[in-house]
Structures are given as structure tokens and as C-alpha cells.
Design a protein around this nucleic acid. Structure first.
Lengths: 224, 224
DNA sequence: AGACGCCATGAATAGGTGTTCATCTTTTGC
DNA sequence: GCAAAAGATGAACACCTATTCATGGCGTCT
């Protein structure tokens, strides 16, 4: 007698899994990775602690998937913004702006995904996450270089450095603390984007123009 | 009957304290902050675990002092290098190069001081450490701005971003892994310094010159 | 030299959270 | 409807390292 999982059951299982992941994400957005503990997450997802282990082998796996999920969303947003730009330099500016706006909008989550101490080993998924985002930025830099807008350079290293600059200055411990004010937030985004563009070799005057262009469509995001 | 501590005893106590701190530093340089555990550190320092607590109230205090110590050394090195430079722009280049060379020479230690997950709260001392170093860099940027070599800008934010770029690209998880080769190491230092200088507004041509100048005296450090 | 107290010791303790598993509940196939 | 199996439960367990504290040794003062 073969027991098969009914559609309904399959759906319920998938829903539970999503609920647990969503609960973990909420917890992280709310109180950082430190708040992602099995028992509280289980409560948030309306399941028992043991149930979590029917869906994720360990806490490390749960957090790893959380990181992967957030990373996927981020990557998609960057691509969308960059692809909508008129040229390679604009695309790069749009990509950088998108990252800046996103990390600022969800500072705790970003900090948790990127650098917050966690009691389990999630280096692998953090590494993968960084690789994806940095790779995308590197591609955009490369496009601008090939278009003759930027000097030749080690694009991988440049992309990594750019992300480091964004993260440290916007969600790191030295980040300005009054970024809840939308105006200040926009200023910070523009300042950092300008730095980033100049770093890869965009001339100052041109960089300022690109920053303004890139910030305009991002305004909606800033408000959200 | 009042018991006073003899000079000899005072010296021995101080020596023990230093030995414990040194042991912690060695452990961190060797295996990152994860290796800074009370029992192993005590062994390294040739004392018992309980003895550590006669010198440091808690592990958090021990690590905090470790961070402060390394930070002091780093700050001194930066100042020395910058003060020896002929002008404000050179000083900035020298400061950036110094940071790059130092973090590369002691990658594990740097990572531990800066960002490695620790099981106790050391955010305060990490914050202080970053503030000191970033403050120094900000001062140097400011000097270059006032000398008319750089456009006006938010120097604090710029300094933070620069350090973020250096750290992420040189000791972060995406850092190139073949930096044990001195030539590659020098290339990485130069590339990142160039990015940093351009980011704050140094013209590309001039930046390249400054980078070469700044790297020359730093060669000795690279070799060490 | 003797007594008193600081310093060092390290085995035992504490505390907190991820993980397990015997038990109960729900769903499935006949 | 009823047995069988998958799924869910949550209290108990396990583990790991910081911290404590009763004890012993050493240095200091009279």
C-alpha cells in the first residue's frame, strides 16, 4: 500500500516551509540575526520548535536559505534597475543606487545578512551572496569600461571595494544615525554613489549628473 | 598592618597582564577571534584560567582591550606614515597604503578586530576603533580639501567608505586568495589605493603618481 | 621567624540554546 | 470506518565555554 502526498498536503507543506522562512526573515528584519532563534521563529510561524527540523536540517540551513532568498531578491532588483537605464554608465549608477537604497531601507536585515555575528556557520551562503551581487556589479563596471567610459581595471576587485564602501558607510557601525529622515537618507545615497562612481574612474562632473539621474527613479523606493 | 605591593610584584603583575594580552593577540593573529578562548589563552600565557579573571573582569573586557591595543598601534603607524609625506595628498595616499599593507600583513587579526563574529559584546570597542582610524583618515582628507587638491565633501562619510572598501576588498570573504605572493600583494595594495584616491576626487593621472610614491616606502612593510 | 593576606589555581558550576525523540494527531488507502 | 504511516509536538537532553570559588602557595610586614 503506497501512500502518496495529496496535492493539499503538498501545498500545506510548502506553505509551512515558506511560513518558517518568512518568520525567520521577519525576525531578522526586526532584531537582526540574533533574533533568529529556533523557538521564537517557530512561535512566529505558528509551529512547534521540533517542526522546524522537519523542514530544515539545522539552524545553519535555515539561515543559509534566508540569506540566499534575500540575496536573490536583491540581485533581481539590481538587474531591473540597471537594465532600465539608458547606457552602461547609467546602469552602473542605477545598480549602485539600488544597493544603497535597499540596505538603507532594511538596515537590520542587511546587517544581518552581511556581517552580523551568528552562532552557526553561514560563511558559505554569505560568500555566495556576496559573489552574486559583486559579480553583477563587476559586470556593469565591465560594460562601462568596454563602452570607453571608464579606464581598464580589475573589475572584480573594484566591485568588491564598492560594495564594501556602501555597506560600511551606510549600515556599518559608523553609519550616520539620522537616516530615518528621508532627505538625509537621499543625501547619503547620493554622496556614497558619487564616491563609488568616482572610484571606478568616472569624471567628477559626469558622475554628479549620473547620480542625480539614478536617484530620481529611486525616490519611490526611498519613500517605501 | 598595611600591605604594600613591592616594585617587583607590581612589575610581575604588569608583566602577567601584558602576557595575557599578548597571548590573546597571538591567538587572534593565529586563528581569529574564535581562537581567543579563556582556557587556550591562559595556556599560552602560562597561567591558569582563573588567573585571567584577576586581570580582566570578563572575556569581553579582554577582547576589548585587545582591540584597543591593536587600534592604537594601527593609528600610530598611520600617523607616522602620513606625517612623513611631503604634502596633504601624499599624506592621504600614505595613510591609505599603510592601512592596506597592515591589514594584508595580518589578515586574520584584522578580520578579528573588525568584523569576525564574537560570542561576547565588543561593539563598543570596535566602534571606538573604527572611529579613531576613520577620524584620522577624515582629517587627512580634510587637509587635502583645504589645500585645494580635492573637492569639498563629507569627509567623515568618505573616510568610512574608504575603510569599508579597503577592508572588504582585502580581508573580506571575497578578497583574492593568492595575496601571499608579494607581487600580487603589492598590486592589490596599489589597485585599492588608486580606487580610494579617485573616490575622494583625486584625478586619475595624479592618483597613479601618488600611489607609486606611497607604495615605495611601504615596500619594507610588505616584506615583513 | 612567624603570621597574615594577596595572588594563583583549576576543577566544578552555570546558563542558554540548538537538537532529539517518544508520543500524539492527522491524513491516506482500502 | 479502520489500520498504517507521515507529520507535528514540546519537554528533555546535550553541548560548550565563560565564570566562580574553595584551596594552596608565596610574598610582606613586625
Amino acid at each position: 500500500m503506497v501512500y502518496r502526498r495529496t496535492h493539499q498536503v503538498v501545498k500545506r507543506l510548502a506553505a509551512r516551509r515558506s511560513a518558517i522562512l518568512a518568520a525567520a526573515r521577519e525576525a531578522a528584519a526586526d532584531g537582526g540575526m540574533a533574533a533568529v532563534q529556533i523557538a521564537p521563529v517557530a512561535v512566529r510561524a505558528h509551529v512547534a520548535a521540533g517542526t522546524v527540523y522537519r523542514y530544515f536540517p539545522s539552524k545553519a540551513d535555515l539561515i543559509s536559505e534566508l540569506i540566499a532568498e534575500v540575496s536573490r531578491d536583491e540581485l533581481a532588483a539590481i538587474r531591473r534597475a540597471a537594465d532600465a537605464a539608458p547606457g552602461p554608465s547609467s546602469a552602473l549608477a542605477a545598480a549602485v543606487t539600488t544597493v544603497a537604497v535597499h540596505v538603507l531601507s532594511q538596515r537590520k536585515l542587511a546587517w544581518g545578512i552581511l556581517a552580523e555575528p551568528v552562532d552557526v556557520d553561514v560563511t558559505a551562503s554569505r560568500l555566495a551572496s556576496r559573489r552574486e551581487i559583486a559579480g553583477e556589479i563587476a559586470t556593469r563596471i565591465d560594460a562601462a569600461v568596454r563602452a570607453g567610459h571608464l579606464p581598464a581595471q580589475d573589475t572584480a576587485l573594484a566591485a568588491t571595494a564598492l560594495l564594501g564602501a556602501l555597506h560600511e558607510s551606510l549600515v556599518g557601525p559608523l553609519a550616520p544615525d539620522n537616516l530615518d529622515d528621508p532627505a538625509k537618507l537621499r543625501d547619503a545615497v547620493q554622496t556614497v554613489t558619487l564616491l563609488a562612481l568616482r572610484a571606478v574612474g568616472v569624471m567628477d562632473a559626469r558622475a554628479r549628473g549620473l547620480v542625480v539621474q539614478a536617484t530620481t527613479p529611486a525616490k519611490a523606493l526611498v519613500g517605501a
